[in-house]
Amino acid sequence: MLLGNAQHKGKRREQQDSFAISDVSDAIFVEKGGILAALADGMGGMSLGREASALAVETMLESYAAKEDSESVDEALMRSLSRANMAVVELARKHDLEGSVGTTMIAAVIFRGGLYWISVGDSRIYLCRDGRLIQLTADHTYASELYEEASIGEISWNDALLHPQRGALTSFLGMERIPIVDRNAQPLSLRDDDRVLLCSDGLYRGLLSEEIVEEMRLSPREAAERLVLRVLAKDLPHQDNVTAIVLAPMELSFAYYEVERPVGGMSHVVGEVR
């Protein structure tokens, strides 16, 4: 099992998280674009949060699938993100709710053993290596700005830590122009026992790094399921939607190796996934 995913509504009335992973048995796609995983945490009244995140994830996958060999992975990710943003802006415009409907977006690609990512909002991508958890994305929340101001003495730490708007997103899909995008142009080269975790805030707000690391020792599939169960087991009062995707690189580079050989390549990849 080279990948896992799990999701739960938490204590919310609606699931506003959306996620998708590209087809790992599609050898042609794997060769061109690797494996893409995308996760979005929607916001907005009525059902629009849910719609926004689903639309963003869908657009992200569709656009990325159009990647040609000449386009680099990071360019393709940026192009897909722009398309997803346009789709969400359009959705908000249709409901006269521009600026108040939106979604976070994180996407990770493992391509020939290298990791590429892109992020807007406060969903997170982690690298788990040698029992340590490394956060690859920054949170685009007002809190981050407040901490910066506090650290240079512009405001007091108390004001920063207690600000009522501290959880508000400062960058998300659904804005006319996205102010901050986290991404890497140079791939991070993965080791065989590395794990990549994509998650919504409902997961990382409820678990300690040590708890996440503990579950990441399992197979990606078990890890994703156990992470979600573990946060739910805490029975936190306002548990938000939880989504986790776990990717392992080893078999992916192996899959790519197999794909390069035309005979039997595809069926082998299918066998690995099942």
Partner: peptide, 12 residues
Amino acid sequence: MSWVRCDKGHYY
């Protein structure tokens, strides 16, 4: 166990 992908890109 068989791990399959649905139309929306979820594995189960």
